[in-house]
Write a protein that binds this DNA or RNA. Structure first.
Lengths: 221, 221
DNA sequence: TTATATTTTTAAGTGAGCTTAAATAATAAA
DNA sequence: TTTATTATTTAAGCTCACTTAAAAATATAA
């Protein structure tokens, strides 16, 4: 496995697949910003390598081997993000793209050393769990998208999608960060936007943004 | 400049060029382990990009722009080596190859942060100088290859070539490391091998190995 | 100086991962 | 169920950094 490109496909499949563990070629194409034809091509190769289960026109699934590769890439990615943020103090919104490159350029043994140096962190700076060297993924308490919460719900911010760095800059500006307590003050059915109280601030967020922020709900009394 | 391959050519030219700053295509080909034809191809592209001065059948030189790129790559390489060795405690002989990959996958701003975190080191673990962010290269006291020393010469080990990891493992086993004091006990003209005293040990080294170890000579009394 | 050897360049071709365009299969709507 | 729409695959072709083999230039030796 010397190939950056295959690694990207496996990570993408892992991250984008549905609850049944399946995914359609188109979704991969959109996500990696390449043509569907390129995806078909690569799926044949990944299938030949025993990394995905692929039959023409059917949903695609990772094999156990493909899953191990994908989890390992995600481990590398999240450890590098943690390092860049916690140790090098790089800006929050830049670490995703840098880690994206580094994950392809570091051996397992290097990443294990990094894990040790960071003292085996369980979550990355965006709140995503970091698989350990055996592929075990730490469990959060269950989270719910902010967009799914209703008026007067309270909770703690657990995860913010790192897909768009814009979002991260915006969130930081509004005082939204992992571990913050929030309360839903209002929700508009009309456009799905929510108003929350975070710290001393009141912040309104569009449905799209709210669906990228995940919350651990407070226990019900 | 998104291209790993061009970066490799520039670093190689920088490292291998002669005292006049020139290099022959063949040397690049040998070093990168590719065909001379591939080198000709790439030289045309590098020349078109204004990175090397190239005319058919003539010696090759870096332009000022090419030099800046090369020095920047070397800065990245040596900072990553320092990090891997000093911080992650990776084995000495592995850091070169890991850094080789990382140097292509890290932005200037990431590497500047790394430099800061490492507290602006001046030399890497093999004793090579680390260019600063402006491309300035720290000066050692002048060094001489161990193979050039004569009987009874004394000095301090300043640099060990990191080209072959085998050499590094061997050197470590013999107690040879940066900063150690040595004395040349004997030198055989016959095969160029030298016997040195390092710490409490007496070690014999072939001419080839001795030519990869560089020494700061003691001041003459 | 001429002959020989070596180095470098040119020419033609390869594989990987992409592209666009056309063909085919699956899905959704009438 | 038929038709229209959308998703996927096939086919042909591109670019990049390489390869091998042959041709041309340069360097070395007789």
């Amino acid at each position: 496995m010397k190939n950056i490109s295959k690694e990207d496909y496996l990570s993408a499949i892992y991250k984008l697949r549905d609850d049944a563990g399946e995914i359609k070629p188109n979704l991969i194409a959109e996500n990696l910003e390449i043509s569907p034809a390129a995806v078909t091509d690569m799926l044949k190769k990944l299938s030949a390598d025993g990394l995905v289960q692929y039959r023409k026109y059917k949903g695609i699934k990772l094999t156990a081997k493909g899953e191990r590769f994908a989890v390992n890439m995600i481990r590398k990615h999240r450890l590098w993000e943690t390092f860049l943020y916690e140790v090098l103090k790089m800006p929050w919104e830049k670490i995703h793209d840098e880690a994206e490159k580094l994950e392809h350029s570091s051996s397992d043994s290097l990443v294990d050393k990094l894990d040790e140096f960071l003292n085996y962190p369980k979550f990355d700076p965006h709140g995503y769990p970091i698989p350990d060297k055996n592929g075990l993924i730490p469990k959060h308490k269950p989270v719910i998208a902010l967009s799914e919460m209703i008026k007067n719900d309270k909770g703690v911010i657990a995860r913010i999608s790192d897909f768009k760095s814009e979002l991260l800059v915006y969130a930081a500006k509004k005082g939204i960060s992992i571990g913050q307590k929030i309360t839903v003050k209002d929700k508009l059915e009309f456009d799905g936007s929510v108003t929350i109280i975070v710290g001393i601030n009141e912040v309104s967020l569009s449905r799209k943004i709210a669906s990228s922020i995940f919350i651990i709900l407070d226990e019900q009394k």
